[in-house]
Amino acid sequence: MDNEYKKGIYGKGAKIPGLAIARMIGHISYLSEQGMDKKFNRRLEEPSFAAKMSDFEKQFETEFAVEGYLAYQGKKFVDRFDANSYIAITKAMDLFDLGARYGDEKYTEDKSPEKAAEKALQKAFKRVKAEILLVSFSSDWLFSPEQAFDIVQALTINNKDVSYIEIPSIHGHDAFLLEKKTAFENVVLTQAIKNFISHIKV
């Protein structure tokens, strides 16, 4: 229970641990099991880091390194993000349905909802005029390769120019944020975008 929530009207200087917890849970979905295992495993938080923690971070369990990391992510987010805008954005994302908005396919009784959604997506993509490059990371389960593939199918049915590349990575959704320029993910992503842009006929 987030005592500061008050129907979404957070006062100035509220601690907002609710938002931090939401971010911590959300942050896990940007990573992957394999990636987290490699980074944290069962490692305990180093005392030097623990000593530097703010009071805010200390509200959370920080015995394991992964806990300290998530607490830090929670704090970082609360410091720079307004809780109400976060709620609004989340709701807007949840309510957005490309197929329903642009596909206009009625969900009739004789069709399964999956079939209807598929048809709606196909109809929605009829209006596409651009050439499309889709890229996904193999371990991303926020924007999964399967979903990207559904988009590919809906576009190819409509004779659209679409290319799809799946970059193998253990870093989950956040694979696109890797800082090392020589990381495999970055090399392939950069090359794919370069190649895609270089061929486009203006």
Binding site: E131, L133, F149, V152, T156, D161, V162, S163, Y164, I165, E166, V188, Q191, A192, N195, F196, S198, H199, I200, K201
Partner: peptide, 13 residues
Amino acid sequence: LKCIKRGVSVVQE
């Protein structure tokens, strides 16, 4: 990547 450069629609699968 070579296909993308050529402008050939390609799906990695």
